[in-house]
Amino acid sequence: MEIITFIAKKLLWLIPTFFGITVISFTVMHLAPGEPMALQANFNPKMTPEMRERLRRAYGLDKPLYVQYARWLKGLVTFDLGRSFSPDRRPVWDKIKERLPVTLLINCLSMLLIIVVSVPLGVAAAVRHNSPFDHITTVLVYLGYAAPSFWLALLAMILFGIKLEWLPISGLHSLMGYSAMSTMEKVMDWARHLVLPVTVSAVGGLAGLSRYMKSSMLEVLRQDYILTARAKGLPENRVIYRHALRNALLPLITILGLSVPGLIGGSVIFESLFAIPGVGQLMWSSVMARDYPVLMGNLVIVAVLTLLGNLLADIGYALADPRVRKGIEGEQ
């Protein structure tokens, strides 16, 4: 029962946070210099001032900021994110909808890869603390972290795409003959294309998580109840995997909840390098072109995803550690 009230309270808190985010984004965005404009390498000599004023009016930019915000908010209530300022004037949700799945797919896969590799790595390093294994894996994961991601990606492209010709360089699937493939072949084709982006984006995340894992494991292993368990003569494996790991996984939950915006931010780089049509690229180009509705739409999506992630983290924490729940309840 108390867990339900806890979740309900958390949910209520999301609402002011969410509006805080939209107000701040809207203001920052409109205060930033520049105005909606297609990106061009050169000036277009035929673009007269009247035309640009005309465009401004068409976008409603001649209205005061609060009017624009109210209008945007009104749309949001009915799940209408407005239309893009770019010349195609497409509904924002259409633009996001067609790109979100790819970005989520890649981020989820790479997150999964990170967890699968770094949790066992962290545990093993903690158990064999200060052994050569610990040292070597430490250096290795940090090497992965320390290499600038776009540099690593390029080197991987050259090695696996050009020199070895094992993997395709960019894109989501083959261009030619794709439609003639069987479902199985299509999955394989996607998989081949996704290996590089997923792996390269995971490499940078290994260090963070495996280090957190190791240190929280070390801490847990030193707790009284573990000592007690050991003293009781329980098998070492059982001590580690039943008792210690469960508690050591706690900080992991928070880290995962926090990593959503970072991952989407990082998607900008991977998506442009590997030519993947995802949300990161959309967001970046909307910042550059000052396409306010698209940018706001993206921020809302990212904010919702992040808030959800945080909520899940909080719930997870509360479920796993009754002390936290009590503590928070006690305060309110």
Partner: peptide
């Protein structure tokens, strides 16, 4: 979007 990738893609026959 990335010019370096585009050149590699040209080289790989894409």
């Amino acid at each position: 979007p990335d010019p370096a990738t585009m050149f590699l893609e040209l080289k790989s026959g894409g």
